[in-house]
Design a protein around this nucleic acid. Sequence first.
DNA 1: TTAGATGCAAACGGTTTGCAGGGAA
DNA 2: TTCCCTGCAAACCGTTTGCATCTAA
Lengths: 150, 150
Amino acid sequence: MNKKPTEDSFDHVRKIFTDYLEQHAHRKTPERFTILKEIFATDGHFDIETLYIRMKNHKYRVSRATLYNTMELLLDCGLVTKHQFGTNFAQFEKSNLFKQHDHFIFSDSGEVLEFYNPLIEQIRSQVEELFDVDVTHYSLTFYGNSKPKK
Amino acid sequence: MNKKPTEDSFDHVRKIFTDYLEQHAHRKTPERFTILKEIFATDGHFDIETLYIRMKNHKYRVSRATLYNTMELLLDCGLVTKHQFGTNFAQFEKSNLFKQHDHFIFSDSGEVLEFYNPLIEQIRSQVEELFDVDVTHYSLTFYGNSKPKK
DNA sequence: TTAGATGCAAACGGTTTGCAGGGAA
DNA sequence: TTCCCTGCAAACCGTTTGCATCTAA
């Protein structure tokens, strides 16, 4: 449940991606797997530009276009999640296969914290009932600041 | 509590804006009040371009720059709320002075529904306690589709 | 062999900025 | 009269697109 990602779990991730690509008749290119590996090798959130630079530093150059393209695939198969935190402030993160969570963001620094509160599931099901819809995903983000010292 | 906005309540809104401008030594220009009036004359969500066109149709031409500028002020004094629903899909809405609410968005059509569920307040206070922070605002949006007919 | 993928650079579109002119205080 | 505000157009910047080349299948 709280198991940390391991080499084993990356095998799992790679299999999910492989299966997804095969099922959708997409090619299994080295770029795609290298991007996946880079994403899962690091914790926390990132944006495209950061990922681009990180990969370049690791001597693996991919074009931004390919990054955007691949993110689309990774989003589609659920391995990555996208958060639009504000205008021109989109970030991705690898899906935590072990724990669902939402975000708190410091307004000043932009630092991102994660939490999980099961009450959100109650709200979700009440929304589904209220509007007679299926909720496919949701976004819950709190913004604020450290409590001032008294 | 569920009172609909009336001419009286727009007086109230105008006073809030006036006070805000005076307190911050901002000028009370006709553009600013015309924009405010236009926003509060219509229900629902809108983006800058829509507002720009709407005002032009009403024979009141303001530049986009002034719209962006004024939205900043209206956000700051709490009369308007901004929602970033996705990349290049920011919308504003006049703050409902009578009722707090969150959103459900149809993934296909982009149609926006509103709901309020008090459980969100419990999550908020638990987040504040957990991280020892003050939450200034939050965003909760569900995405999904109509339930398929069986 | 060939259709899908990549890399590059140009295009795109919402937002921001620089600057000259205008008007609230 | 002052200097904040407006309008305009260019700049900005993250993202998308078009196209030639490459390569997985």
